[in-house]
Write a protein that binds this DNA or RNA. Structure first.
Length: 620
DNA sequence: GTCCAAGGTCCCTTTGGCCG
DNA sequence: CGGCCAAAGGGACCTTGGAC
């Protein structure tokens, strides 16, 4: 019977107990007692109640489930819930606060950091997710998460474009930790240095400090100081491995209103600072000076043919320039999107740097000692002497012979000086059609009148002029009434390149103009003896072609440097040397000749590759 | 456009106090 | 007691307005 009717078996005792419970309540009522009195007596557990108390709070699963069930009933009941919630809230808040206290204390050791502990490695690896992510403060985080996002927003699916609450939450938590103890400054030290490095004003840093985002300005100041010390230590270590050393001058101008005298600060303080560059793929044996010396002794001087671009280089330059010209068209005219993705319209690589390569470099302290003096760099020299035998031999030789200065021109200065040189050659006067002065005034460009204007101002002005000239050439050469129609005709990439080559020939190649050798005896027709008519020269057109040609060289140089392809720079070096020589900038033409000579005669291929890769990345 | 002067503003450094 | 920070001093730069 028990197995056949389980339901009735369960229900019957229940209804029976309900009945007896009612009896108990009626009895209590008769005694003017309530069920609450009963419960409180049990909880107090005095005398004979002790057994009931123990049963109520017994850890046995059945007893525990019963008690929790009672509490559940209370809070799930429509009438009970408001009462319980109102009562429980202050207790719950206190519990949460206590929990947060414990969590925050536990997190302290993970965030503890002093300004003296800052190192270059710390800056490189600083990441708020790594610092704050693993911190176990789940209660605080839950509270902040609840505060930071509405329930509606939580329910929505998240995409990559959704607000990044996570990082902000970590920063807020970091602020709270810092608020608790200034020792917990791991995040603030990183953000403070970031602020300083971005040139944030002192006032703003003060504001950030008060919001708990950074350490104080004073602390940042002292960190920068100690970072400089540590960086010098690293540079010392790097100087024991294959490296290159570059110099740049630094000129600090101070107030010109200060009275000048022998012991006062001078108007302009000149100094020098060195930069140590770690070399890419360099092995110590490749850096040995011996083969280079041998090559130098065997070498023969450059001749004129070395100042002409080789056929391969010329071919390469023409194809690069054709691509450049097409890219100018596709940049400004819509409708060439498909063509511009074509492989034929990309710059063919010549000798690119490895993808994603970054040269490691170590700037040294600026020294006010004259650049030729060795005193300012004793530290460095000492560090080197402690280095390996091979390296020392190389360094000492270079140092003593000052051969390092052969490399002292960096690609950025090369490009900048080439632009200045083009400016000098084509500047002309306001009233000369096609002169740069006239074009600048058409474009309303200012501050380009000086001898050495700002690089970026000049570059953007010249770039606009080149683009304008080339676009005009496209309009003339495309055989359509407008460039938009040309785009609609959907020319193939090869059509575009053909047209670009026509543009190079017609618009960027000046006519050869020969003046008579003897101006008193102009050339005559050999048969009739009649004086030949003077060839009519379109000066403006010719000058514009010259300007376009020069700007294309500059554009190629700048672009090759930007993409890190020294092969493309090497191709046009002879032409650039001639341009420098032509505009009277002998220093740079001589420097390029030195470089060409070294590449051709002195350097081993490995050594040349290592140094030329560096050459691109050195900006001074 | 260039020069000059004055006042405001900002930055760096020092010093003493406070806090964990 | 060590380390950090607020306040203040000192110095140089920047802006403004005027003269030429």
């Amino acid at each position: 019977m028990e197995t056949s009717d389980p339901i009735s078996r369960r229900r019957r005792p229940k209804s029976r107990s309900k009945g007896s419970l009612l009896t108990v309540l009626r009895d209590l009522q008769g005694l003017r007692l309530t069920v609450v009195d009963l419960l409180m007596a049990i909880i107090d557990g005095n005398g004979e109640f002790e057994g009931f108390r123990n049963a109520l709070f017994s850890p046995k699963p059945k007893n525990r489930a019963a008690l929790l069930g009672l509490l559940d009933r209370l809070i799930q009941d429509d009438k009970g819930r408001p009462i319980v919630e109102k009562w429980v809230f202050p207790h719950a808040l206190r519990l949460v606060c206590n929990k947060v206290h414990v969590e925050m204390e536990a997190a302290k050791p993970c965030l503890r950091m002093y300004t003296t502990e800052v190192s270059p490695e710390f800056i490189e690896n600083w990441d708020i997710h790594q610092i704050m992510g693993p911190l176990a403060t789940p209660t605080l985080r839950s509270v902040l998460e609840a505060a930071g996002e509405s329930k509606i927003s939580v329910a929505k699916p998240k995409s990559t474009k959704s607000k990044n609450r996570f990082t902000a939450l970590l920063i807020i938590m970091a602020q709270i930790h810092y608020l608790r103890s200034w020792h917990s400054a791991r995040v603030q030290i990183g953000l403070g240095l970031q602020a300083w490095a971005c040139g944030t004003s002192r006032q703003m840093i003060d504001v950030l400090h008060r919001t708990g985002l950074t350490v104080s300005y004073n602390s940042i100041s002292s960190m920068v100081q100690s970072l400089a010390d540590r960086s010098i230590e690293r540079a010392k270590a790097a100087s024991l491995l294959p490296h290159a050393l570059a110099y740049d001058n630094i000129n600090i101008s101070s107030s010109i209103y200060v009275e000048q005298g022998p012991n006062t600060m001078s108007k302009v303080q000149s100094g020098t600072f060195g930069v140590i560059y770690e070399l890419l793929n360099a092995r110590a044996e490749d850096m040995s000076i011996r083969p280079l010396i041998d090559n130098l002794q065997r070498s023969s001087p450059l001749d004129m043919s070395d100042l002409r671009m080789t056929p391969a280089a010329r071919q390469s330059y023409l194809s690069q320039t054709a691509v450049t010209i097409v890219r100018i068209l596709t940049k400004y005219v819509r409708g060439f999107e498909i063509q511009s993705a074509d492989v034929a319209l990309q710059h063919p690589p010549r000798r690119p740097l490895p993808e994603g390569h970054k040269t490691v470099f170590h700037p040294l302290r600026a020294s006010t000692i004259e650049e030729a003096s060795i005193d300012g760099n004793l530290l460095l020299t000492n560090a080197r002497i402690r280095g390996g035998q091979n390296i020392r031999r190389k360094d000492v030789s270079y140092w003593e012979r000052r051969e390092i200065f052969q490399l002292a021109f960096g690609s950025f200065h090369l490009a900048m000086n080439l632009l200045w040189c083009i400016l000098e050659t084509h500047r002309g006067k306001q009233n000369q059609t096609g002169s740069l002065t006239q074009l600048f005034s058409i474009l309303e460009k200012t501050r380009l009148g000086g001898e050495q204007p700002d690089y970026h101002t000049l570059l953007s002005a010249l770039r606009q002029i080149l683009h304008g000239l080339v676009l005009n050439a496209w309009r003339m050469e495309c055989n359509y009434s407008s460039l938009a129609d040309f785009a609609k005709a959907d020319p193939t990439p090869n059509d575009l390149l053909d047209c670009a080559r026509r543009i190079i020939n017609k618009y960027a190649t000046p006519d050869a103009v020969f003046e008579p050798v003897n101006s008193k005896a102009p050339p005559k027709d050999p048969r009739s003896g009649v004086e030949l008519p003077k060839p009519s020269i379109d000066v403006v057109r010719n000058n514009t072609a010259l300007l376009t040609r020069d700007l294309l060289y500059a554009s190629e140089l700048v672009d090759a440097i930007a993409t890190g392809d020294f092969g493309r720079v090497e191709d046009i070096l002879p032409a650039i040397a001639c341009m420098f020589r032509g505009s009277g900038s002998n220093n740079y033409s001589t420097e390029i000749l030195h470089l060409l000579f070294n590449i051709k005669e002195v350097w081993t291929p490995v050594f040349a590759y290592v140094l030329l890769s560096l050459h691109l990345t050195v900006t001074s």
